[in-house]
């Protein structure tokens, strides 16, 4: 395991011990309203871009 971790770290200055996975995967914070906002805004931008794109791009299915 230790060897594998070292291999993944490769030649960076981070050593094998640095690659402790636990704290990368554990400790999920509760979902917060700002995350809802972030996610919703991304989707809104996607929809706006989609509508504009379908009208503007000459090869879209609308044309």
């Amino acid at each position: 395991m230790e060897e594998e971790r070292k291999a993944a770290a490769g030649t960076g200055s981070l050593t094998g011990e640095a690659l402790e996975a636990e704290d990368v995967l554990a400790g999920a914070e509760p979902w917060e309203p700002i995350e809802t906002k972030l996610v919703l805004w991304s989707f809104v931008i996607a929809i706006i871009a989609l509508v504009i794109g379908l009208f503007v791009v000459p090869t879209s299915v609308l044309h």
Partner: peptide
């Protein structure tokens, strides 16, 4: 940020 922190292959 000091990039040599990141493994060379990346």
């Amino acid at each position: 940020f000091d990039n040599s922190t990141i493994p060379e292959w990346i």
